[in-house]
Amino acid sequence: MRKVMDGQRTHQHEGELVVFVLGMTINKPWRVDRWMPVFAAMPKMLEELSADPESGLLGHRLGIGPGGPISVQYWSSTEKLFDYASDREALHRPAWAAFNRGAMKTPGAVGIWHETYVVEQAESAYVNTPVTGLSEATSSVPVGRGKERARDRLKQLRPAQL
Rank of each mutant, 00 (worst) to 15 (best):
M1P: 01
M1D: 03
R2V: 01
R2S: 03
M5N: 01
D6H: 03
D6A: 09
D6Y: 01
G7M: 06
Q8N: 00
Q8D: 00
T10K: 06
T10F: 00
H11G: 03
H11L: 06
H11T: 03
Q12F: 14
E14I: 09
G15K: 09
L17W: 06
L17H: 10
L22V: 14
L22H: 15
M24S: 08
T25F: 06
T25Q: 14
T25H: 13
N27Q: 14
K28W: 07
K28G: 08
W30L: 15
R31K: 15
R31V: 12
D33E: 07
W35T: 09
M36W: 10
P37W: 07
A40M: 01
A40K: 05
A40W: 00
A41K: 04
A41M: 01
M42N: 05
M45S: 09
L46P: 02
L46Y: 04
E47S: 08
E47W: 04
E48L: 05
L49E: 06
L49W: 03
S50L: 01
S50V: 04
A51V: 06
D52N: 15
D52L: 08
E54K: 10
E54Q: 08
G56H: 03
G59R: 05
H60I: 01
R61M: 05
R61W: 11
R61P: 00
G63T: 09
G65Y: 07
G65H: 07
I70P: 02
S71Q: 11
S71P: 00
S71L: 11
Y74R: 00
W75K: 01
W75D: 04
W75A: 02
S76R: 13
S76A: 11
T78S: 11
T78K: 11
E79L: 11
E79Y: 05
L81A: 10
L81W: 05
F82L: 03
F82T: 01
Y84S: 03
Y84E: 05
A85D: 09
S86E: 12
L91V: 02
H92W: 15
H92M: 05
R93I: 13
P94N: 02
W96Y: 14
A97Y: 10
A97W: 10
A97L: 12
A98V: 08
F99H: 08
N100S: 13
R101V: 12
A103L: 04
M104Y: 15
M104K: 15
K105W: 02
T106P: 00
P107Q: 11
P107C: 12
P107M: 10
A109Q: 09
A109V: 06
V110Q: 12
V110N: 14
V110W: 08
G111A: 14
W113M: 08
E115Y: 02
E115Q: 12
Y117R: 03
Y117T: 02
V118I: 14
V118C: 13
V119F: 02
E120G: 13
Q121L: 11
Q121F: 02
Y126G: 07
Y126E: 05
Y126Q: 11
V127H: 09
V127P: 05
V127R: 10
V127F: 10
N128E: 07
T129A: 08
T129P: 00
V131C: 10
V131A: 14
V131R: 12
T132L: 03
T132F: 03
E136S: 07
T138P: 06
S139V: 02
S139C: 05
V141P: 14
P142H: 06
V143L: 08
V143S: 12
G144L: 12
R145M: 15
G146V: 06
G146L: 09
K147T: 03
E148C: 04
R149E: 06
A150H: 00
L154S: 08
L157V: 07
